[in-house]
Write a protein that binds this DNA or RNA. Structure first.
Lengths: 342, 342
DNA sequence: CTGTTAGCGCGTTCAT
DNA sequence: ATGAACGCGCTAACAG
């Protein structure tokens, strides 16, 4: 375990000063070509490598950014992170991952922890919008650390965000069902204190209204994003006096549960009941009865969030202008809703 | 954007020395209760937070560890990372993510980059075992930076690893097919320069031999882990003069392709052809015709890899003992191979 | 118990 | 073009 060589080591060997070595290595102009070459050569020879930690302490930039997500083992978040990493790596940044498991206290803890680690910015998807305290976010703003929300955001002045147009995604999905001839479309919703679920709900509602279809609150049911929960809720719907002929789900997992339950009731998909999910999880494509879903282009979302961060980081802190990027979702039509083959 | 307060700020305010502040904050015993309380109170009051960067430079420990994977948006790797993060977070470590996209040069680059960032250890899954140069790994050893392989490893003296028993996983899967009455079992293999695929191949082979079934190299075909590739290879197999009545695939994706192709040929699963995959990807469970697969317990793998790292990190660098943990895989039997209902 | 000094490795004045 | 000195924020060694 040999000690790492520092600029002092190579300075000593060359009987010059560490400052000169530093200058030579960093391409400072005021240096003779001779010593530059000499320094570079011996640096290579001695396997010198810059200690970014010292640089970070000196410059105040760690070239680390923190990414906080509810959990990483979901295709959506993993893909966003992939996009972030790919965009940031060429710029010399490293990505630190934190998970909140939807626990607010962990979210706060993670932010503080990342702050102590002197990250240059934080990109995150909020775990829960219920709580009023945005104190931990304000803290970031005060410290001048760029904060960027993706997907699950909160409206805070001065904070940029990258989301998809959930309203449009839901609107398009519902319109599609209507165009396929569906007359009574149920909605498996989710905690509408989160903007994404609220907007999906509103998009669904508006599509109905625009098409002159009665909006019936009784067939809008909050359902946790789990297959089994989807089954349960669907069972309720199918046992109603006036059951739906289509289900628009705010989650692919509940959509899958819905499909299972519909089949269990001996009904046909899409003929008797059509189903549309949300997120375009990989499995929706793989199913024998493939599932129509709304794609959120997560990798792209990550890339853009990263770009927004880079802009803010290089903005030499002029005006704290916030940027709100809204990506357009794409409806991927598959078997579970395609009644009319053109 | 207020400057961060340092121990000097609070020392100045209290007319004491920064060293004393440091001691008070760190629970050093040789300090009066009075000043301790005073320091702690004013620290809180001034919103003091320790700069881990300075600590890292001083101590040589950054409390960051690097995780290198081919890509993060695969359920397996994402789950391993989840396990790592969850295990390490309570110990104060942060996890830095790097992707190689199976490019060897990126693998080397990532290691160097992480090294410059002074990570305390590297946990990784190798991208490609072809190349002979393990120079970048030796470098880590020389520097005394713990290196731990998970899943895709390389045998290097002094390097610990956490893997599953791929041989057993394949052996059990093949035995299961034999027990179901299958007589001619094909194998969708993959690049066998990687230990995991080599061992799966060997386990498959051994199970055949142990059961007195002829091993036929012509129905072992290397296939990239893609659905479409699985279809192509399966087409070849089904068009043979003596086609297989079962397929053991080293990947769930090729298994899925196989299933699609078998159905396209008008054959029934599992009656005509049984299929077993590997990895227990989420979709294998969700399919209407669920797919039998071998579970690798990725979260557990990540947790254990993290624990091995912690041991090495705290081992006060005595003997460079390597640890090779081999987890037992679990065969999850589902529709695609269950002919005999008990 | 507390202050003084020094150093982790680097870049950056200010001189020369 | 180069050297000397300093500071980033913190802890540890040595005094007292």
């Amino acid at each position: 375990m040999n000690k790492k060589t520092t600029i002092y080591d190579i300075a000593e060997k060359l009987n010059i000063t560490a400052a000169t070595v530093s200058r030579a290595l960093n391409g400072n102009t005021k240096i003779s070509e001779a010593t530059r070459k000499l320094v570079n050569d011996t640096a290579k020879e001695m396997n010198y490598e810059q200690n970014k930690l010292a640089l970070a302490l000196k410059s105040g930039k760690s070239f680390n950014i923190g990414v906080i997500v509810p959990r990483i083992d979901s295709n959506f978040f993993a893909s966003v992170i992939r996009g972030i990493e790919e965009e940031l790596y060429p710029h010399g940044y490293h990505v630190i991952i934190c998970q909140t498991h939807d626990q607010e206290n962990l979210e706060i803890e993670n932010i503080n922890s990342l702050l102590n680690a002197q990250v240059d910015g934080i990109l995150m998807s909020i775990s829960n919008a219920k709580l009023e305290t945005s104190e931990h976010f304000q803290k970031l703003l005060r410290k001048g650390v760029p904060l960027i929300f993706f997907d699950r955001k909160k409206d805070i002045p001065g904070v940029s965000s990258v989301t998809i147009d959930d309203f449009k995604g839901a609107y398009d999905a519902t319109k599609h069902l209507i165009n396929q001839g569906c007359k009574r479309i149920a909605h498996l919703s989710n905690n509408r204190e989160m903007q994404i679920f609220k907007n999906r709900y509103l998009g669904y509602k508006q599509a109905l209204i625009d098409s002159g279809i009665e909006f019936d609150e009784s067939i809008v049911i909050e359902t946790m994003s789990k297959v089994l929960e989807g089954r349960k809720t669907t069972k309720l719907l199918l046992n109603m006096n006036y059951p739906p002929d289509a289900i628009f789900s705010s989650s692919d997992f509940t959509a899958l549960g819905a499909i299972e339950e519909i089949k269990a009731h001996g009904l046909k998909i899409p003929e008797d009941v059509s189903v549309v999910g949300f997120s375009n999880e990989p499995f929706t494509r793989f199913m024998e009865l493939s599932i129509t879903s709304v794609d959120q282009s997560p990798i792209e979302m990550g890339r853009i969030a990263a770009k927004v961060f880079l802009e803010e980081a290089n903005n030499s802190k002029k005006i704290k202008s916030e940027k709100r990027v809204v990506l357009s979702p794409e409806l991927i039509i598959r078997d579970s809703s395609l009644k009319l083959k053109n």
